[in-house]
Amino acid sequence: MFPELNSILNTSPDHFPRGEFTLVSDRQADASFLIHHFLSFYLRAGCKVCFLGLVQSFSHYSAVSQRLGVNLAQAKEKGQLVFLEGLKETLSILLRENRSSDTDTLSFLSRSPCTDLRGLFGFVRGCVRGEQGPWGPPVLIVDDLSVMLSLGVSADALLDFSHYCQATVCSELQGNVVMLTRGEDEEGEDDEDLGRLLTGLAHSCHLALRVRGLATGYCKDIHGEVELCWRGGRTSVNFSGLTDHRRVYQYKIQDKGVSFFARGTSSAVL
């Protein structure tokens, strides 16, 4: 959890807006630090977190969270965190190992052509609607959705999945959804499916965080820019008050946190 980002977003673990869909996307930069932020943020806030880790192993997230002061293994034991090891399970499905019934969640990957992500949604639904225990509102975090495109899932199927997650978690249960999507790759290749996915998600999100590298190239002291774009959820009726609608900050990732500053005001520049 990065306190500076909390003050920018005007949230804290004690007080945060509910029923919001946050889209995190990146282009020529890595936005996974935001995923680590949201994971530790919601765990500290006492929410029940369902995490779909599709690009890294549990031990990776656990190691990073340790640095941010949150113990994932403990949270998992207590039932606060439900972690889907997508990285390992997708591999075993694609290699046709371990065809047991409990891998139904990701079984859509073995179907060709892949029709829908109903199984994965079923997993999420069971997780967020199940026994809540002492935990707060449910939170779904996905890292990252676009990797499904590489596994042969169509953009439309992913948009349907995200719609169902939003309808269940945000609207029905008043929880929050955070999804990460990778943008175009380094060569700037225009991937049609990826573009559709990003556009579709951007239409339905309440807050979009777009991370991108500096246009001027690599810099030791400024790692990139993050653009915050509020699209007016239930908190504000519409998008009036445009002055507050879109803001851009530059950031620098440090050892145990991230510092955010206005454009051109890095301590290395001034």
């Binding site: 829908d116 949604f121 639904r125 719609h163 169902y164 309808a167 029905e172």
Partner: peptide, 9 residues
């Protein structure tokens, strides 16, 4: 048509 547009649930 928001809650269950594709009859999943």
């Amino acid at each position: 048509g928001y809650t269950d547009p594709l009859c999943w649930t």
